[in-house]
Design a protein around this nucleic acid. Structure first.
Lengths: 351, 351
DNA sequence: TGGTGCCACCGAAATGTTTCGAAAGAGTCG
DNA sequence: CGACTCTTTCGAAACATTTCGGTGGCACCA
């Protein structure tokens, strides 16, 4: 029994001694119980980190069955979500991971609390979660973080919490590029049909839009900025509202392709030609943009790549690798198609 | 410490004492470990039975693990698959089932044999599978049947095997209705842009088409029938081929909305007005048909309902219920939108 | 017959988890 | 300012599970 301090057998009790708490407390932290003070939890986590201890359950899950990650999204009715899902699935197939799909926003969905949900993920031996956009608010993520469940949020609605890993796109730059494109075509009255006002990504797009306008010395017109949802109905309603304005805009920057599609549909109904009478730019660059009539100029996000990146992050966290960054932003780029054209009737006022 | 025999606190150790074994042995029996002799196991089980002991894990899983079914489809790039998936997910949410998504036709997909795949389903404790369309051939389903894994095929490519449960739609009736609609508008030169020749559902649609023609005494023209895939490219190529014909058709019945979309796109490029110059009918009735320009007349399949039905069947098999039928066919119905119009230039020849 | 090796089976001890009550704080009321 | 209650947090003890080595039966061999 001489000098037996070193090996310390990587046991719960050893961690407990090191952290200066009792074994049960360490067990609670490892298994995500609630009744541990934040400070104590931190101490224990440090000790755990340092020693690399894994609970027997964790050890089992790593060795045994293929990992299963849960993908949560609002609905499959948006091309956005489907594209991201596609990216996730592709990387999943390549990495020998399985994907469990969970669509909130379905009638009859069981209203599980995040707490229960997180517990279930543990219970069923899953090992990570990818959340798209609005499915969870920051506060609802807390139970997952507490249990150390790898979680990645794609394009979070709320400002990304410090300790949540998130994947997004350069929304600000995209918004700026779209608006600059319209400005370059001579447009000066450019409207912005945005998504939910609170959404982080929407705000970034809006501020990119404003930045581009300001760079050209074009005043930002309150009437031209309409927030709503990312859905086509908002495009329809927004288009109607814009057309009622005394000084109609000559171009519209829609914060999603779906919105833009609504604009296109309403334009058709009102016999407004796109792009001759009005230019339209979308955002997302889903296949919808390619297939619309006319094909939509749009800020393309690398949605599949975002999905892949999200899964990569989950797997990396799962393996315990340290992440070089808790936030990744992939580049957007403007794809010019046929829904934008030089501003026609406004040469005089533009001067 | 007097007479403390009675309450016996319903603990592992108590059972062990009663069965005359050690506590670990009881634990092993309760948790289904292998290394317990059959005889010992029986003794313990008797004691367990009598006392009604439940392991903590069992106690917690009053809400037993939720069943997981695996959904297999080719790709998410078709609205068809996404709609079906939507139906499955909806019913899954309502029935407290989880859905594991598996997309074949992805590069990098691990080339697992059906044999391995079936084994894995057993290993990981899943309990059923839903296969959409072309993902598996009949022969590949054999390992699943052998293992008694509940499996349901949606709109099988091959003639449904006797012992495989399948869900489909009334393709023949739909094909006939679409063609009859065109005939009723005065069209006599009606082309059929079909999917894969071997596909059961495609054949049914084709024969519905032919039946409608024959009912009106309109000869079936070989040149007007072009098989290919269900994808838009086939619509584009088919449209080009049809336009090269000496006697151009005045209407096209496409065996999927995607094909019809390709036709629409090519028509635009060639300055052919739909429906004035040519009528187009699609099949599937996905949202694509509603949103196209012009909105597409299409034979609507109840895709979501099919997904729901498929999951219902899986769950029923899982529970061991007997199925009243191994094949369900849901009704299709024609939805007339704006891509079809009376035949214009052909009044003379039609007479 | 005795040795040898193997292996299924079991339980002591080590390890992890849960229960439950106690201690410490934070309000609340008189 | 106490007296009381309620809540949070923690760990001792009770409980459960896992590891790991021992035991004995059995086959095979000489």
């Amino acid at each position: 029994m001489a000098g037996s301090e070193r090996p310390a057998k990587l046991t719960l009790a050893a961690i407990a001694r090191e952290a200066g708490v009792s074994a049960p407390t360490v067990s609670k932290v490892v298994n995500g119980r609630e009744d541990v003070a934040a400070e104590t939890r931190a101490k224990v986590l440090t000790a755990l980190e340092r020693s690399g201890y894994k609970s027997p359950l964790q050890r089992k899950n790593i060795a045994w069955r293929r990992p299963v990650v849960e993908m949560v999204l609002d609905s499959l009715n948006s091309a956005y979500g489907v594209e991201v899902l596609n990216g996730v699935l592709e990387h999943a197939a390549a990495s020998d991971v399985e994907v469990l799909l969970n669509v909130t926003g379905v009638q009859g969905a069981s209203p599980l609390s995040p707490e229960q949900r997180a517990q279930r993920i543990i219970d069923e031996g899953r090992c990570g979660m990818i959340v798209v956009t609005s499915a969870f608010s920051s506060a609802q993520l807390e139970p997952f973080l507490r249990r150390d469940i790898p979680i990645v949020v794609i394009d979070p609605l709320n400002p990304p919490q410090a300790d949540v890993v998130s994947v997004g796109a350069s929304n600000w730059a995209g918004g700026k590029a779209a608006t600059a494109h319209l400005l370059g075509l001579g447009h000066r009255r450019i409207a912005f049909l945005g998504g939910p006002e609170a959404a982080e990504c929407n705000q970034a797009r809006l501020h990119g839009y404003m930045a581009a306008l300001m760079a050209e010395g074009v005043p930002v017109e309150e009437d031209y900025i309409l927030s709503g949802t990312f859905r086509p109905e908002h495009g329809v309603a927004g288009m109607k509202a814009l057309l009622r304005l005394e000084k109609r805009p000559t171009a519209i920057f829609a914060a999603s392709d779906s919105i833009a599609l609504g604009v296109l549909a309403e334009a058709r109904r009102q016999q407004i030609r796109i792009p001759e009478d009005m230019s339209v730019v979308g955002f997302d660059g889903t296949y919808q943009a390619e297939e619309s009539v006319p094909p939509l100029t749009s800020v393309s996000q690398p949605l599949q790549e975002m999905g892949r990146a999200a899964l990569r992050f989950v797997l990396r966290q799962m393996r315990g690798d340290t992440l070089d960054s808790r936030r990744v932003e992939l580049a957007t780029h403007l794809v010019v198609r046929e829904s934008t054209a030089p501003c026609a009737g406004e040469a005089a006022s533009a001067h």
